[in-house]
Design a protein around this nucleic acid. Structure first.
Length: 270
DNA sequence: TAGGCCATCTGGTCCT
DNA sequence: AGGACCAGATGGCCTA
């Protein structure tokens, strides 16, 4: 697929280690580290400029922490041997010993931890890209990549919509075949209630693109009457009156499925 | 220029 | 003990 994961290279999620490490240490206070970089920015005292050369050397070793199930896509290991030596060196220094560790040792440990964290976040981003790929929005060079929060919210809404569709299908099947079983209750989302645009998630150019491909079917997640897409301002919710009035605590972004309409879906979520 | 988004660093905590 | 996970801080990039 031509997922935009690859195309959004304006800010690569995982810069090359060379870019990562080399210029990073030359940043003194302002932090124009690597390309996007802010290496050791939070605690400048931990990494005074005079350590630059030293750190760079250490980076060569600690930055090579491979863990490369990413197939080299992520942080290419400069050499696995160095990483093993690094890990052994770091392993020899425990938390207890921290006070007794020499500065280079501490730096190596810190770099190793940083590298691990970087890899972890990189893996997270890969998973996020995978999620974007299966999300019903247009993927293409001209389409901006969904932000992380937008991806998560969209995914959630998509799942909810699919759940509703499944329920609806069950209901129809049971109606058709006269299966008014006691155990089956039409969902609170009720009948064809969703003939009205269901979730209305993110206003997005993808909606238009998708509509072009599937003119007869309204977008399952993206509203047909989506407002102008604002890449930096995700708006979830079909319209003002359709807003669920439920804000996600962390983001303040209203979720899409009105609880009163889809109670069964919401059960257990909150 | 402000605000959104992001990558990275870092220290703390939890888990194996 | 070491690694995974998390949240806060920081600074860069981009867009309105």
């Amino acid at each position: 697929m031509d997922s935009d994961a690859s195309l959004v290279s304006s800010r690569p999620s995982s810069p090359e280690p060379d870019d990562l490490f080399l210029p990073a240490r030359s940043k003194s206070s302002g932090g124009s580290g690597f390309t996007g970089g802010t290496v050791s920015s939070s605690t400048p005292s931990d990494c005074p400029p005079e350590r630059s050369a030293e750190l760079r050397g250490a980076m060569g070793a600690a930055g090579a922490h491979p863990g490369d199930k990413l197939g080299g896509g992520g942080f290419k290991s400069s050499s696995s041997s160095t990483s093993s030596s690094t890990s052994s060196a770091a392993a020899s220094s425990t938390k207890k010993d921290k006070k007794q560790m020499t500065e280079p040792e501490l730096q190596q440990l810190r770099l190793k931890i940083n590298s691990r964290e970087r890899k972890r976040m990189h893996d997270l981003n890969i998973a996020m890209d995978g999620l974007r790929e299966v999300m019903p929005y247009a993927h293409g060079p001209s389409v901006r990549k969904l932000s992380k929060i937008a991806t998560l919210l969209l995914a959630r809404n998509y799942i909810l919509m699919l759940t509703n569709s499944l329920e609806e299908m069950k209901r129809l099947v049971s109606e058709i075949y006269g299966g008014h079983h006691a155990g089956f209750h039409p969902s609170a989302c009720g009948g064809l209630a969703h003939s009205a645009p269901l979730p209305a998630a993110t206003a997005h150019p993808a909606a238009a693109a998708h509509a072009a491909h599937h003119p007869a079917v309204h977008h399952p997640v993206l509203p047909p009457h989506a407002p102008r897409w604002s890449p930096t301002r995700i708006q979830l919710g079909a319209s003002a009156e359709d807003q669920p009035r439920e804000a996600t605590p962390a983001t303040g972004i209203a979720t899409v499925f009105p609880a009163e309409r889809c109670g069964s879906v919401w059960r257990g979520i909150r």
